[in-house]
Structure formats: structure tokens, C-alpha cells
């Protein structure tokens, strides 16, 4: 994103060549021709930009602004917006135990996803970076869960995780272990962690893929030099690979964080936010309020809070973590 912006600033297109060729004409003709060209250029710009801008305004900007507006009214879906309640919706969302629980669950998913996927992704990427037979096939296989929709992955896992008769519990049973009595998704103390594990399975392909690309960008000379110095494999990974993969890891963690904050599909398929609201997320909360209960004001306030939390975390992350990378790149 930042790259695109900086490139555009430097790479702005030349002024039309016609500007130069008209320099020796008389001032009046020049200005009228210029005006005509200006007008034509503007018409072209409008022609090119209008479809995208219209689509964007109607389906992105208007709904977002409507969410802001909804959030300060009490509204149940019919009649005009009349019952202005100021910040009441925000107060009732923020003091709602279900919502604060949803925020906590979302944060556990955000942090847990990064803590699980970072080491696992790195380990698998290092493994796949070695020369071996069937490497290409393995890279494809590892990426398959990422390509499946969350719904399909969720439906399969829902079956695998069925209490007692599911594959997971039978496999445990064959080695003499028992799954939780209420099932992996039925026990309020365990359900969220089960969701986290399934999400890790589903999304691990992305860090592997990105880290593999990063590994290929590390110059081989560094490894050769380390080898000459007699460094062990662990020392090489700790002192060369991990520091040089830093920017890729930090960018991936950012994407993972933004994705986790929007978590909905997998939870909706696996648990619907249950049992006993143990796995609600901010999005399941606002969808539930907005559709099943038709509390549009509450849903609007919740989506604004979600937006503010996501924006704050994104800005903080950019400021505190990613700034290092952009600074280094600017040198």
C-alpha cells in the first residue's frame, strides 16, 4: 500500500505532449485550444472514474455512514429514524456482558492466532525450503485449507469434532483418552480454544507461503559465510533467517490481526457463538443484534466500536511495529 503511494508520487504521468507543441502559437488561440483540451480531459476523467466511484459511494460509503447514523437512534427496522438517543446505544453495547465477552474472545483469537501460527508457519516454511522430492506438491497441499471457504472447512471440522462418534474423539479413544464429555464445541471452557485450533489449521497456509517467499529473498552468501564460520543450524536460523524474515513476519501478523478482528463465518458454522456465549465475536454479536433481534441501533453502535478498535489497532501496529520497516526501506 505504502509502496503504491510513493511510486505514484514519483511516477506521475507527463503532461500531454500537446501542451508543448502549442507554445509558439498566439496566446489567444493557445488559450482556447488549451481550454478545449482541458475540457476534453476532464470529460475523459469523469468517464473513467464514474462507474467505480458510483459503486463505491453507493455500496461502501453510504452504508458506512448509515451505520454511523443508525448508531445514535433507537430503530427496529420500520418507520423513519426519529428516536434519537445520542450515545445510549454505545453505552448499552459497552456495558453489555455479551459484547465485552465478544471483544475478549476476539482479542484471544487475534493474539492466539499469531502466537500459534508464527512459530508453526516458520517451522513448516523452513522445512519446505529444503530441497526434497515432492516439494512442489507439498507446497500445494499445505495451501489447500487456505483456499477452502471457511464454511466448508467449518462443516467438515464440525463433523470431525462430534462428541464420542467424531473422528477426533474416536482417535483419542483408541489411545485410551477421552474427549470432553460435552464435546469439543459443547464445553464453554474449551469451545473457544477449539475454534482457535481449527482457524490455525485453516489459515496456516498463508504465513507458510509468505515466509517461503521471504526465505527465497535472503541472499545465499550470508549462509555461506555462516557456514565458513562454523555456525550451527540453530545459530544460522536465529541470527540470519529470523531477523531477515522480520519484515515479512510483521506484515503477515498485521494481515492476520485485521482478519481475526472480522471473524464470523467459522464461528457461525461451528458454534453460532455458543455454548452460553462462550465463542461470540464482535461480528457475531452485531449480526445477531441486526438480524435476529432487529436492534439496528445496537448493531450500528457495535459496528462503529468494531471499526474504531480495528482502526486503533491498525494505527498502533503501523506506528509501533511496522514503522521500523518503512524507516529501513527509506534509507
Amino acid at each position: 500500500m505504502s509502496n503504491a503511494t510513493t511510486r505514484s508520487a514519483g511516477g506521475a504521468s507527463e503532461a500531454p505532449p500537446a501542451d508543448r507543441s502549442t507554445q509558439d502559437r498566439t496566446p489567444r488561440r493557445r488559450s482556447s485550444r488549451r481550454a478545449r483540451q482541458e475540457w476534453r480531459k476532464r470529460a475523459e476523467i469523469v468517464f473513467f472514474v464514474t462507474p467505480a466511484l458510483a459503486l463505491f459511494v453507493v455500496f461502501v460509503i453510504v452504508p458506512v455512514l448509515t451505520a454511523v447514523q443508525m448508531s445514535v437512534y433507537r430503530w427496529r427496522g420500520f418507520g423513519p429514524l426519529e428516536d434519537f438517543v445520542g450515545l445510549d446505544n454505545y453505552v448499552s453495547v459497552l456495558t453489555n456482558d455479551v459484547f465485552t465477552g465478544a471483544v475478549a474472545h476476539t482479542m484471544i483469537i487475534v493474539v492466539g492466532s499469531i502466537l500459534l501460527q508464527l512459530p508453526l508457519g516458520l517451522a513448516v516454511a523452513l522445512l519446505l525450503n529444503r530441497k526434497m522430492k515432492g516439494q512442489g506438491l507439498l507446497r500445494t497441499i499445505v495451501f489447500v485449507p487456505f483456499v477452502l471457504s471457511e464454511v466448508i472447512a467449518g462443516v467438515i471440522w464440525f463433523q470431525l469434532l462430534q462428541p464420542r462418534y467424531g473422528v477426533v474423539d474416536t482417535a483419542l479413544g483408541s489411545v485410551g483418552l477421552d474427549g470432553p464429555a460435552q464435546g469439543w464445541l459443547g464445553d464453554p471452557d474449551i469451545a473457544l480454544w477449539t475454534v482457535l485450533i481449527v482457524l490455525t489449521w485453516k489459515y496456516l497456509g498463508l504465513p507458510i507461503l509468505l515466509f517461503l517467499a521471504g526465505l527465497q529473498g535472503i541472499p545465499n552468501d550470508l549462509y555461506e559465510a555462516a557456514q565458513l564460520d562454523g555456525a550451527t543450524w540453530w545459530q544460522v536460523q536465529r541470527n540470519i533467517t529470523i531477523p531477515l524474515l522480520g519484515p515479512t513476519m510483521r506484515t503477515w501478523a498485521f494481515l492476520s490481526m485485521i482478519g481475526s478482528l472480522q471473524l464470523f463465518d467459522m464461528v457461525w458454522i461451528l458454534t453460532r457463538g455458543g455454548p452460553a456465549n462462550a465463542t461470540t465475536t464482535m461480528v457475531t454479536f452485531l449480526v445477531n443484534e441486526g438480524t435476529n433481534r432487529q436492534n439496528y441501533g445496537i448493531a450500528g453502535a457495535a459496528s462503529m466500536i468494531l471499526f474504531v478498535i480495528a482502526l486503533t489497532m491498525a494505527i498502533l501496529y503501523q506506528r509501533l511495529v511496522l514503522r521500523r520497516d518503512t524507516k529501513e526501506a527509506g534509507r
Binding site: 463505491f56 451505520a67 485485521i258 464470523f264 441486526g290 450500528g300 459496528s303 480495528a310
Partner: peptide, 30 residues
């Protein structure tokens, strides 16, 4: 093209990256 407001227009689109569909899904539905 070089025109006044070009970067502003680009920023409008880039700002869209900040709004995932989840934030606007209920108004969108309506």
C-alpha cells in the same frame, strides 16, 4: 492523467481498505 484532486481521489479508494464488509453489513442489508 495529471489533474487536481488525483491523490485525494486515490486516497478515497485507499480509505476503503479500512472498511471491511462486516462494519457496514447491516446497513448494506437494509
Amino acid at each position: 492523467y495529471r489533474f487536481r484532486g488525483r491523490e485525494a481521489l486515490f486516497t478515497v479508494f485507499v480509505a476503503g481498505l479500512l472498511f471491511p464488509v462486516t462494519v457496514a453489513v447491516i446497513p448494506l442489508f437494509i
